[in-house]
Design a protein around this nucleic acid. Structure first.
Ligand SMILES: [Zn+2]
Ligand SMILES: [Zn+2]
Ligand SMILES: [Zn+2]
Ligand SMILES: [Zn+2]
Lengths: 168, 168
DNA sequence: CCGGCGATGTAATAAGATAACGCCATGACC
DNA sequence: GGTCATGGCGTTATCTTATTACATCGCCGG
């Protein structure tokens, strides 16, 4: 992993945002949610969640695996990570970005959300949105086709504001 | 590959639709489009396109590879298929379904389209839609975020009309 | 204490995709 | 016709992503 402008080296990362707070917040919400549901947020799962939240970029399972191995000081098997991710995705704590085969922390776990993302092809950051208009439009057209929606996926590739400024 | 209700065994497949016509049509349009653009629709590429159009289900690259090998009577390398698919996707003749790692023939090549799909989780069929409302909604929210869209992906998982009828 | 069940560990392997290298057909140009 | 550049294709190896099968551990109710 090389140095990278958006990732979080220190407590107060660039963008003027305190990312440590993002992480702490995500973990707190996860604790609450799992407690509420009687789901077991194991040490391992919590650790993986934290690693997913390490940045606002989608991260591949094997990247997370590397981090985990490093932090644990011993090699970990892929399956370990995949199982944790499966749990986290099931409980809406993490989303999978299909077009990247990568995972990212959910911005609003617990709330109803359909998983919509703006993914920057330059810096790799992904912002979760949950626009009612998109949801509505999808619902409408699905209904017109007699199609019963179970899981809508919206992943918009493009360039974020920051990256546009840098490359005028 | 097991027998499967939606695939096309004979000329007139189920659904009351003559799928042979779908294929012929797709090939004709592809010929025209490539001629118009000076793109070379090689025998191999044409063959792969035909195999992609073998059904209205997204097909994995390796499934296509198998078909191709069988038709040719000799083993073919994955790269062969991937190269053909790359060409076809670039020219908008085929779409990639990200959430399935699979490929499907484009319903309206040549026209502007953003690649929106209704994917049935039961039968595997995928219908391409191109709803202006969805496109508009995505455009709007992207603009609100100062996000410049390059490639929107909409893949709605769910159950198609037919499959709903079968399982009331 | 013990049986059951969910979580984790270990090993092997499947599935999807790309990299590196070279040959050969095509067509422009001389 | 000869020559050369280009693009398509074949071959092999390798990489990334994901899953299957089976053993073990630890907690909790009985
Ligand atoms: Zn943050
Ligand atoms: Zn960016
Ligand atoms: Zn058809
Ligand atoms: Zn169906």
């Amino acid at each position: 992993m090389t140095a990278d402008p958006h990732s979080t080296a220190g407590p107060a990362s660039r963008h003027g945002h305190d990312h440590a707070h993002c992480i702490a917040d995500a973990l707190t919400r996860a604790d609450a949610l799992c407690a509420e549901r009687g789901a077991r947020l194991t040490a391992l799962r919590r650790q993986v969640l934290e690693l997913v939240w390490n940045s606002h970029k989608p991260r591949g399972a094997y990247a997370i695996l590397e981090d985990l191995s490093q932090r644990e000081g011993k090699a970990t098997a892929p399956l370990t990570v995949y199982r944790a991710l499966e749990f986290l995705v099931e409980h809406g704590l993490v989303h999978r970005i299909e077009s990247l085969n990568a995972y990212i922390g959910c911005a609003a776990p617990g709330a109803v959300h359909s998983g919509q993302f703006l993914v920057c092809e330059t810096c790799g950051n992904a912002v979760e949105i949950d626009d009612p208009r998109i949801r509505a439009a999808i619902g409408t057209i699905a209904a017109e086709h007699g199609f019963q929606v179970s899981r809508p996926t919206v992943e918009v590739r493009g360039t974020c504001t920051d990256c546009q400024e840098k490359t005028p």
